[in-house]
């Protein structure tokens, strides 16, 4: 899926891009989130778009955390539970929600699902999910 499901805002660098929350699984199995612009590849390690982004190599974009491919198979756009699990749910802009194949309860404007973990769970404990949308 090319469009982020949940975004923290429009990309301040390119304008029309979405700063989407993307989940990465490190080789050790731990996970971490990044905010990535789906239009211009700008990357933020925190869900604060007022901070200065990093711009990866345009031909070989990689995560600034562990160097894995920015758009590789070990990453995917986060669903709502993953946004909550990494503690970034409060930064999600509900008006930028993109409905994908998940049921409507993934809409942050609706009541979050009951199995959403509390927001203070460390990001490393977020279970990896296979959404098949990695490119």
């Amino acid at each position: 899926m090319p469009t982020p499901r949940h975004s923290v805002g429009p990309c301040p660098s390119c304008g029309d891009g979405l700063g989407g929350i993307r989940i990465y699984t490190s080789p050790g199995g731990t996970t971490y989130p990044l905010v990535v612009c789906d239009e211009c590849d700008a990357v933020w390690t925190e869900p604060d778009l007022s901070r200065r982004p990093t711009f990866p190599d345009p031909e070989d974009a990689r995560s600034p955390i562990d160097g894995q491919p920015l758009w590789g198979a070990d990453s995917h756009w986060a669903d709502l539970a993953e946004c909550a699990a990494c503690g970034w749910l409060a930064q999600v802009d509900p008006t930028l929600h993109h409905h994908g194949p998940l049921p409507a309860d993934d809409d942050p404007l609706a009541t979050p699902p009951a199995d959403v973990p509390p927001a203070d769970v460390p990001a490393a404990d977020v279970p990896p999910a296979d959404h098949g949308d990695a490119s």
Binding site: T3, L18, D41, D60, A61, W71, H99, S135
Partner: peptide, 25 residues
């Protein structure tokens, strides 16, 4: 060149020759 979520910048440009009415913004 190569790059972008689509794998190549031309493939990314292709996203902008058709509408995506469900896309936020």
């Amino acid at each position: 060149t190569r790059g972008s979520q689509e794998g190549h910048r031309l493939k990314h440009l292709e996203r902008h020759v058709a509408d995506d009415p469900d896309r936020p913004g």
